[in-house]
Amino acid sequence: MNRNVILTCAVTGAGDTTARNPNVPVTPKAIAASCIEAAHAGASIAHIHVRDPETGGISHSTEQFREVMERVREADVDIVMNITAGGGGDWIPDATDPTRGGPGTDIQTPAERHAPVGELLPELCTLDCGSLNFGDMVYVNPADWLREHARLVQAAGVKPELECFDLGHVWFARQLQQEGLIDGDPLYQLCLGIPWGAEADTETMLAMRNKLPANANWAAFGIGRHQMPMVAQAVLLGGHARVGLEDNLFLEKGVLANNGQLVEKASTIIENLGARVMTPAETRVHLKLRDPMTGRIMGNAVGGDV
């Protein structure tokens, strides 16, 4: 069991969720406000996407990421910032010509995916570790693209969160580490419950955890109704946890959530298990992240029972 838990709040995502829950933030101002709300509720990390303010759809705008980060940094709160670098991988074959991308396709090169990270230098960024049948579309991330992207993140000095949606992604993330493309102790995020990747259940989480390198830090999340059970399961298996409106829109059946409520509910679960949520400052030390004020890499990890 993990007694010192890093709790991430993924505040908005990029999915078609804004019409289903009005609390899903869309504008940079609203996304920043959700990060601040999560910080006040006790989250260690805020994971952010940005959206088109007019449509609520996907955006990759560096300026929108910049506005979110600046608003959060100017607020009287502390939270580790983790920006997505996994956008631009959505492939939906055209109905009449499957060799071409149809409506909804959104493909970026590794350099384009990395652009906001390279310019803004957040403490963390995601690195999605493979391709996947992602619901009714395909998420495209070939091995050579992923190697290129890992080199860019490494050169920027940003710590990658290795997002693994299936067991093969863990395998390839280990390969990146063996090739010298991941510095220090790796940070894995086990992403469970997305059709048709890894299922959100104990057996799958345990199988993925057992394939991690010995020096790995890891977290896990489940989507929808699996969110809170996977919080408890991750802590019991020695990991960290993630909640937020990117992954789940409901506080309980029929009751729409906001990000602060999801953080508070997860924190209660963690505390009832006999653990505690780590502060952002402790998180930076534990993961050896760059301090956003000084640029200095923080020191040795805090203790915890596993």
Results as ranks from 00 to 15, higher is better:
1 M>T: 14
5 V>C: 02
5 V>I: 08
10 A>D: 07
16 D>R: 15
25 P>W: 00
25 P>F: 00
29 K>M: 11
33 A>E: 13
40 H>S: 09
40 H>M: 10
43 A>Q: 02
53 P>Q: 00
54 E>M: 12
55 T>R: 01
56 G>V: 10
63 E>P: 12
64 Q>G: 10
77 V>W: 07
89 G>D: 01
90 D>Y: 14
94 D>L: 03
95 A>F: 10
104 G>I: 04
108 Q>G: 14
111 A>F: 12
114 H>F: 15
119 E>F: 02
126 T>R: 08
130 G>N: 03
137 M>L: 14
140 V>D: 03
156 A>W: 05
159 K>S: 04
162 L>W: 06
167 L>F: 10
168 G>E: 13
173 A>E: 00
178 Q>V: 12
178 Q>H: 13
185 D>K: 12
194 I>A: 11
196 W>R: 15
197 G>D: 05
207 A>W: 11
207 A>T: 13
209 R>D: 08
210 N>A: 11
218 W>G: 03
218 W>T: 08
220 A>I: 02
221 F>R: 07
224 G>Q: 12
226 H>Y: 10
232 A>I: 09
237 L>N: 14
240 H>Y: 03
244 G>S: 06
244 G>L: 04
247 D>C: 05
252 E>H: 08
266 A>Y: 00
266 A>D: 04
268 T>I: 13
276 R>T: 15
283 T>H: 03
289 L>D: 07
296 R>G: 14
300 N>V: 15
305 D>N: 14
306 V>L: 15
